[in-house]
């Protein structure tokens, strides 16, 4: 369990990135922070592995304040996946995946053997092991990034807009892959995105952030859609318009679901 207790972050230039955030991130679930840029979602994520330290307040992992943990050791115990994969361009795929185990002192041979298994886990062919990241497609690189994040079998996996830079078709594949992995592995996943559809698809808990680093609402996707906390949330999730404002019409004795523009979205099953 990760817990933020009245966490505030003010940067030296005076910008307040996070303002008094209290949130509990349940274990073995996916929590998605979603908001536009400047909402502090990435800053919150980075506080978990001490890439950023809060100005005030506490971040706790299983009851221990991360401020008491040595940053390098802390980071090696937490998986991290970022946008554009963040792979080391001068290391082969296999070395990239084996990076953290080897930093933790595992023997090269063991780390490599485990890295090959991880390539299987994320659905990559083992023949890619000896390639350099630049020789891979964006989607493949992102999978390698996920494999690297899982390499030390961490309890916590931080994902900072990991699918933001790949095309929509590959993104959909990667999202399904993550859902499958999460079903198998049950990590505590903290995911950051600006895409509300992605948040609703992946998140057990969705945290909607607004400008200035405050939480507008934290709840399950269904709860947010059914009871948006305020106009900002309703607007942000699009509950008041477009494809989320669905209604039912009758056609030939069957009940059709149509969106705000009248386009059919499906048929009511019962």
């Amino acid at each position: 369990m990760i817990e933020f207790r009245s966490v505030t972050k003010q940067f030296p230039d005076g910008t307040v990135a996070v303002a008094g955030v209290d949130i509990v991130i349940p274990p073995r679930k996916t929590t998605v922070f979603v908001g536009s840029s400047g909402s502090g979602k990435t800053t919150l994520l980075r506080m978990i592995n001490r890439m950023v330290d809060p100005t005030s307040g506490q971040v706790l992992i299983d009851g221990t304040d991360v401020a008491t943990r040595e940053p390098v050791a802390l980071r090696r115990s937490i998986g991290y996946v970022m946008q554009n994969s963040g792979l080391l361009p001068h290391r082969k795929v296999i070395d990239n995946v084996a990076t953290v185990p080897m930093l933790r002192g595992q023997k090269r041979r063991d780390a490599h053997a485990h890295a090959l298994e991880l390539l299987d886990t994320v659905g990559l062919d083992r023949s890619l092991a000896d390639k350099y990241p630049s020789q891979l497609s964006g989607g493949q690189q992102q999978r390698v990034g996920v494999a690297r994040g899982l390499a030390v079998d961490p309890n916590i996996l931080l994902m900072d807009e990991p699918f933001g830079a790949v095309d929509p078709i590959v993104r959909a594949e990667l999202q399904q892959e993550l859902l499958r992995l999460q079903g198998d592995l049950g990590k505590t996943v903290v995911f950051v995105t600006h895409d509300i559809d992605e948040a609703f698809l992946l998140g057990d808990q969705v945290v909607i952030m607004q400008q200035g680093g405050q939480i507008s609402q934290a709840a399950s996707p269904a709860e947010i859609l059914a009871n948006p906390a305020d106009d900002f949330v309703a607007n942000f999730v699009g509950a008041d318009r477009g494809k989320r404002a669905l209604h039912v019409t009758e056609l030939g004795g069957r009940r059709l679901v149509v969106d705000a523009d009248g386009r059919p979205a499906g048929v009511l099953a019962s």
Binding site: R46, N49, M51, V72, A73, R75, R76, Y80, M82, Q83, N84, G86, L87, L88, P89, T99, V100, L103, R104, R148, L158
Partner: peptide, 13 residues
């Protein structure tokens, strides 16, 4: 900068 940050984030000293 991204690569440097990512190296730090995965636990390089």
């Amino acid at each position: 900068r991204d690569i440097r940050q990512s190296a730090t984030a995965v636990g390089y000293s």
